[in-house]
Amino acid sequence: MSTPHLASVNVGTPKQIGVRKGRPVMSAIDKRAVPGRHTVEGVNVAGDEQADLRVHGGADKAVYAYADEDTAWWSAELERELWPGVFGENLTTRGVDCTNAVIGERWRIGSAVFEVCQPRQPCFKLGLHLEDPKMLKRFAQASRPGAYLRILEPGTIEAGDAIEITDVPDHGVTIRLVADAVLLDHDLAADAARAPQLPEGLRGWLLERAG
């Protein structure tokens, strides 16, 4: 993989992406790359918004990262050209394996510090956005979920900034393991729940499934 760095910073605002059950569906999943330095603080990248704050946003879903390498894989899989931000990610990374990032590992990008906290769990809006009704199932089965990050230290970031992984917990629970435990195989739940840095609600759900 190339030297870890930020390929692009992507933001979006809510807009209608389709109709479901006769009602317009609003989403900010369509993110686009923006130039220059951008502030990250609190629960967001400056200029970015979410349409449904019940299930998006917040401290444990403050920033979404997806690897450029995974986007390239999808482009080949879907036989179509894809762009940075196509999966709704704020940070398109290059040289970082977001799928196998360890829950709780920390990234320094620019002057900001982030913590990997959970995988993305897709909803029907991904299929509407990509005009593919099978995309929800395909995304889950591909085990390339991308990583939600907490903002531990606010700062500014820009495309080209190095991504320095400064701390990796020794429990070994990865983004992929948690995603697979939730979406594909509940028998993995006990193993996935070993990461104390998971959001409380998600870790509790995994522990319940583990029995």
Score class of each variant (00 low, 15 high):
residue 56 H to E: 11
residue 61 K to P: 07
residue 168 V to T: 15
residue 47 G to L: 06
residue 66 Y to L: 11
residue 192 A to R: 06
residue 197 Q to L: 09
residue 102 V to P: 03
residue 143 S to V: 15
residue 15 K to Q: 15
residue 135 M to T: 06
residue 188 L to D: 03
residue 95 G to I: 02
residue 91 L to I: 10
residue 95 G to S: 05
residue 114 F to T: 08
residue 154 P to D: 11
residue 135 M to G: 05
residue 30 D to C: 07
residue 64 Y to I: 02
residue 55 V to R: 15
residue 174 T to K: 12
residue 72 A to R: 15
residue 13 T to C: 09
residue 90 N to G: 05
residue 205 W to D: 15
residue 29 I to A: 02
residue 36 G to W: 04
residue 148 Y to W: 13
residue 97 D to T: 05
residue 129 H to E: 12
residue 89 E to T: 01
residue 201 G to C: 04
residue 72 A to W: 06
residue 54 R to W: 08
residue 17 I to R: 00
residue 70 D to F: 04
residue 92 T to S: 10
residue 157 I to P: 10
residue 37 R to E: 14
residue 130 L to P: 10
residue 113 V to T: 14
residue 32 R to Q: 14
residue 210 A to H: 12
residue 91 L to T: 01
residue 93 T to C: 01
residue 95 G to K: 05
residue 97 D to Y: 02
residue 106 R to A: 02
residue 159 A to F: 06
residue 143 S to P: 04
residue 24 P to V: 00
residue 88 G to E: 05
residue 136 L to I: 14
residue 26 M to A: 01
residue 75 S to P: 06
residue 24 P to T: 02
residue 75 S to F: 03
residue 86 V to W: 07
residue 120 R to I: 08
residue 25 V to A: 00
residue 58 G to L: 10
residue 178 V to E: 10
residue 144 R to P: 08
residue 180 D to E: 15
residue 170 D to T: 14
residue 206 L to A: 14
residue 51 A to W: 08
residue 78 L to Y: 07
residue 175 I to M: 14
residue 91 L to H: 08
residue 3 T to F: 04
residue 12 G to E: 13
residue 14 P to A: 14
residue 134 K to Y: 10
residue 141 Q to I: 03
residue 155 G to T: 13
residue 154 P to N: 07
residue 37 R to F: 01
residue 138 R to I: 08
residue 54 R to S: 15
residue 35 P to D: 11
residue 206 L to D: 12
residue 198 L to W: 11
residue 109 I to G: 05
residue 181 A to M: 09
residue 111 S to Y: 02
residue 53 L to A: 12
residue 110 G to E: 11
residue 26 M to S: 09
residue 17 I to F: 00
residue 41 E to M: 07
